[in-house]
Design a protein around this nucleic acid. Structure first.
Length: 325
DNA sequence: ACTGAAGCCTGGTTGC
DNA sequence: TGCAACCAGGCTTCAG
């Protein structure tokens, strides 16, 4: 499942091939992979969620995306939490013969969220189809030539979109509107440790719920939440306001450690749900101490790891190392 | 202001 | 064997 390390591996993998690349053509095979994409004109009346898309609206959304993405030239891929995007390069491209529709200029980006099972794959133009390819782009890079970018997504929780960029409030860097409320991640040099500490210690919610809140700290999903809590010896239900400042700092350090280690190992691959841009799995699954190890011995104290329901999914923790307060 | 649940999805697994 | 129910989980929306 793509969390920060997985998304970052994909972002870094796309960078050499797509920075400066130009979109030759686009094919939307399944408009459900455009949930976050809002057509410029002809309001289809959908917020993108909760309503089954009528066939007409789906076709219009697909056509709008294909038309507007064709001809775009990308700058280097960026990431905020689990969102990543390719900024559209400056106005130079907009004057070409096959220029994009008016309104698609430097302040736009091709936004991607991988959801649960999304993959961005770089393929040779002649390569066979991977499974579950929902959207395909043909691009041309000045030095690498032509290649395909395939967005594959089994469960369709992810999506691509053209989204507008706007300056952030802190340093004025550009963020897609849909990622505007996402906090920085713990590996970001500009991450605000003090704000995180204050945020955690002012809330009554359980600490696991808090670190899954992307507005407080981004990039954390179920796997790394369980791993960081295990490392910091915190019970997932411990109220934020009951945790000492020192312990919150320790947890932040644990998040940084687990992210950095997972990044170094190419991410965590479970059930072939996550692969890099070449379709290869990561190795961090072998390094997990708690997640997915219900019933197994805690690597620290040998007590059986507990698995309990948590908001429609599961929490894994050691009942001895991670005592409830 | 906060919490919990529903809804979006498919494919592998489990149960009958 | 065949089919239904269930589970995985990020994010948004809505009801309480």
């Amino acid at each position: 499942m793509p969390e920060l390390p997985e998304v970052e591996v994909v972002r870094a993998g796309l960078a050499p091939a797509l920075t400066g690349a130009r979109v030759l053509a686009a094919e939307v095979r399944d408009a459900r992979a455009l949930k976050r994409h809002l057509p410029l004109s002809g309001d289809d009346g959908l917020g993108g969620h909760g309503v089954t898309m009528p066939a007409e609206a789906a076709a219009e959304r697909a056509a709008d995306f294909e038309r507007r993405v064709t001809g775009l030239v990308f700058d280097a891929p960026q990431r905020r939490g689990k969102f990543m995007w390719l900024p559209v390069a400056g106005a130079a491209s907009a004057t070409a013969a096959d220029s994009p529709a008016p309104g698609v200029a430097a302040e736009w980006a091709l936004l991607a969220h991988l959801g649960m099972s999304g993959q961005l794959l770089l393929r040779d133009t002649a390569a066979e189809d991977d499974r579950h390819v929902r959207i395909r782009l043909w691009v041309e890079h000045p030095t690498h030539g032509e290649l395909r970018v395939d967005f594959a997504d089994q469960r369709l929780f992810g999506s691509l979109a053209l989204d507008r960029l706007a300056p952030t409030s802190d340093d004025g860097s550009l963020l897609p509107l849909q990622a505007a409320r996402i906090a920085r991640d713990p590996l970001d040099p500009r991450f605000d440790d003090a704000a995180f500490l204050a945020g955690v210690r002012s809330r009554a919610s359980g600490i696991k719920k808090l670190i899954l809140d992307q507005a407080l700290v981004s990039g954390v999903g179920n796997i790394y939440a369980d791993e960081a809590l295990w490392r910091a010896r915190l019970h997932p239900d411990t109220a934020g306001r009951a945790i000492s400042a020192r312990k919150v700092s320790e947890l932040l350090g644990a998040l940084r450690d687990v992210f950095a280690q997972a990044l170094a190992e190419g991410g965590t691959s479970f059930d072939e749900q996550y692969v890099n841009v070449n379709g290869q799995a990561g190795y961090f699954a072998h390094s997990l101490n708690a997640y997915g190890r219900g019933g197994e011995a805690c690597p620290r104290c040998a007590t059986a790891i507990k698995r309990v329901p948590f908001g429609g999914r599961s929490s894994h923790y050691c009942p001895r190392c991670q005592r409830r307060r």
